[in-house]
Design a binder for these strands. Structure first.
Lengths: 145, 145
DNA sequence: CTTGTATACTTGAGGTCGCAAGCAAATATA
DNA sequence: TATATTTGCTTGCGACCTCAAGTATACAAG
């Protein structure tokens, strides 16, 4: 039970600090960033909206509204699917790619400072292994990065 | 970085499932439960509101509104501090104690199912150790349970 | 005693999220 | 072809959270 509580607290403290830094330096929330990473590393730098929702564990309506914001800012644009008229892709724009790459530089450093630097390579591997056993429900690929 | 992403995803999936189960069976959110635990194990089954906020990592205004709900339901009541008129205690009522103990029974089983059962005693200890190194900002005692 | 600062708490406004409901397109079944 | 189900997506609504601002109390310094 101690481990579960620590996971809860660590998550709360880390996301609060990381999101705050992203917000002040880049005007992005941690979720915004998370979505941008997923699209950035997807083939063609675009993803079906439903797949984004599943991998970042957000409801479909949540994705609609989050992408609304990124579209209004011009980082992301919609693209239609030729073979299935139901699906819409979310694709990074050119400025979206630049925006993400800028944010990525400082964010990776922040994650390293607050998280990565606390563990040796071995411990890092252990931690990933242990956390990897937890159930993700219907979450998707749990991509790289 | 893999470990950090897994922590994010595991937290999202677990809190979603645990909160949903608490909600349907007891009408409590995971945060409600978290606050009730803290008060339950505090001396005199009461805590200063600000201390609750710090240990569960919620803003003071968040605590005011969360406790509003628990007070309206009758699980928690306010108590004044004799030595400092600024502070208000949040204390469990009798029905609040019962409510918590009922919720606790099923919640502990849920946490065991979704979290505890995935690890051996050794691994559990390792995980708690690793997560314990992460920064908690100004979070308080990070209590038992 | 008065002034300034820190602390505990509350309230209003604004943002984010999930659920339920609804629409449209695809797919399965008759 | 006609009907039913599933899937992808959006919208209205309500719940919850944070931030900024305000109130009240405590305390420290002049």
């Amino acid at each position: 039970m101690a481990a579960w509580i620590r996971l809860l607290r660590a998550h709360a403290a880390l996301t609060r600090e990381l999101s705050s830094r992203l917000e002040t330096r880049h005007g992005l929330s941690l979720r915004d960033y998370d979505v941008l990473v997923q699209i950035y590393f997807a083939p063609g730098r675009r993803m079906r909206r439903i797949d984004i929702a599943r991998t970042v564990i957000l409801s479909p309506s949540g994705i609609t509204r989050l992408l609304d914001g990124l579209e209004r800012s011009g980082w992301v644009k919609k693209e239609h699917c030729a073979s299935d008229a139901r699906v819409t892709y979310a694709a990074l724009t050119e400025t979206g790619v630049e925006k993400f790459e800028q944010a990525r530089a400082t964010h990776l450093a922040d994650v390293e400072e607050l998280f990565g630097s606390r563990f040796s390579d071995d411990e890092h591997h252990q931690l990933a292994d242990l956390l990897g056993r937890l159930p993700l429900a219907d979450a998707g690929a749990c991509n790289s990065e």
